[in-house]
Amino acid sequence: ADTPGHVQYTRNMVTGASTADLAVVLVDARNGVIEQTRRHAAVAALLRVPHVVLAVNKMDLVAYDETVFAKIAEEFTAYAGELGVPEITAIPISALAGDNVVEPSSNMDWYGGPTVLEHLETVPVSHDLATCHARLPVQYVIRPQTAEHPDYRGYAGQIAAGAFRVGESVTVLPSGRTSKVAGIDLLGQPVDVAWTPQSVTLLLEDDIDISRGDLIVPSGDAPATTQDVEATVCHVADTALSVGQRVLLKHTTRTVKAIVKEIPSRLTLDDLSQHPEPGRLVANDIGRVRIRTAEPLALDSYADSRRTGSFLLIDPSDGTTLAAGMAGDAFATPADEAAQAGAADDEGWDF
């Protein structure tokens, strides 16, 4: 995705970075690191993009000077490192002349690193499945009830993270009921193991009340369920998001009613300062929010899982997307509070 660095396009940057494994930050060698550069680095860090390429362009206009490149690379690396960007690769290029874009440049023989294309084709973007939290948001319950499959009950969805294996103990959230994986169907064929991002159907040993929006996870690796969500959101709508506003929160395949309880701060990307208690967020604002949901959600921290730690806030009146959210560490609602919360009026929003 091509995302400009101007402040009015912050929502475009967030949208583009939300599913990216690598971001290329383009810098004019004549201007060096500017406000837009810092904003891109901040968004990449916020969205947990694991690889960032600093492409210092127009090196032909600075006579392919190594010191110019080194100064820019040092400044950007220091800034992005403070933000927590895990990997930064700086490459001097001239897009006009093709230097270090596809082939190594004879004009910059002092540079011994990869070209842009070489780096893009070789950077590791796969994830270690052994360290991922296995998650399957249920999209559809399959019950053909045919003569051939009279008792078939499968839970279909795309594996959001990790892997599932036949015989594994699993828990269904938010109900907390447990079972074991009796079978896995992939493209109509049984398999012993399946992993992200495959779309599969899980069969369980026990008949459990499972519906769209439930989350199937390994029993020993279940996220906390909560009705109180603290998160960072990027506001993408033209209308403001205010304290007390009623919204719908869409997390994976589950959508619940929610209320914005607090907006503790708004982030200024230019200097990463926090503006406390702004009261509302407008288009392109990034801020911290506290949200209360009508039903429990099984949320991971966005730092642990980009797929199951993210959500959308939606206007219930017209379906407009209001904000994209990244959950912080969720905490379990005490049992007595959960029981009281479950008694809320279906038509009411005071929960």
Score class of each variant (00 low, 15 high):
79 Y>G: 04
294 A>R: 11
82 E>V: 09
267 L>E: 08
33 V>I: 14
254 R>C: 07
69 F>S: 04
326 M>N: 02
197 P>R: 00
295 E>G: 06
308 T>E: 05
332 A>P: 00
290 R>N: 12
248 L>V: 05
94 S>R: 04
40 H>P: 10
47 L>E: 09
36 Q>Y: 02
240 A>H: 11
21 D>I: 01
342 G>D: 14
101 V>M: 14
75 E>I: 04
204 L>M: 08
236 V>D: 03
183 G>S: 15
18 S>C: 07
19 T>D: 12
137 P>Y: 03
248 L>N: 07
33 V>R: 00
288 R>C: 07
85 V>A: 02
333 T>Q: 13
263 I>A: 01
192 D>H: 13
183 G>M: 09
234 C>I: 00
253 T>M: 06
348 G>F: 09
307 R>T: 11
55 A>Y: 07
192 D>T: 14
348 G>L: 06
258 A>C: 12
51 H>E: 10
70 A>C: 10
40 H>K: 08
166 V>K: 14
183 G>L: 07
24 V>I: 15
111 Y>T: 05
286 I>V: 15
64 Y>S: 04
308 T>M: 12
81 G>R: 04
52 V>K: 04
106 S>F: 11
261 K>C: 03
86 P>I: 04
205 E>T: 15
63 A>Y: 10
115 T>P: 01
178 T>I: 09
23 A>W: 01
231 A>F: 02
290 R>K: 15
276 P>H: 07
285 D>Y: 02
312 L>H: 13
169 S>L: 05
15 T>K: 05
174 P>M: 00
6 H>R: 11
28 D>F: 06
346 D>R: 13
255 T>H: 02
291 I>G: 01
37 T>M: 11
309 G>P: 03
153 R>Y: 09
188 G>V: 04
203 L>Q: 13
65 D>C: 05
116 V>E: 03
289 V>S: 04
50 P>E: 00
244 G>K: 03
33 V>D: 00
224 A>Q: 14
137 P>F: 01
42 A>R: 08
37 T>I: 11
108 M>R: 04
42 A>T: 14
80 A>Q: 08
240 A>V: 12
238 D>E: 15
158 Q>N: 14
340 Q>H: 14
346 D>W: 11
230 E>F: 12
213 G>W: 00
94 S>E: 03
196 T>D: 09
25 V>L: 15
131 T>P: 03
88 I>T: 12
289 V>M: 05
122 T>M: 09
192 D>F: 10
200 V>I: 15
9 Y>D: 09
277 E>W: 12
207 D>K: 14
147 A>S: 15
328 G>A: 12
113 G>Q: 06
291 I>V: 13
201 T>P: 07
288 R>G: 15
96 L>I: 14
44 A>T: 10
145 Q>D: 13
98 G>M: 10
300 D>S: 09
313 L>W: 01
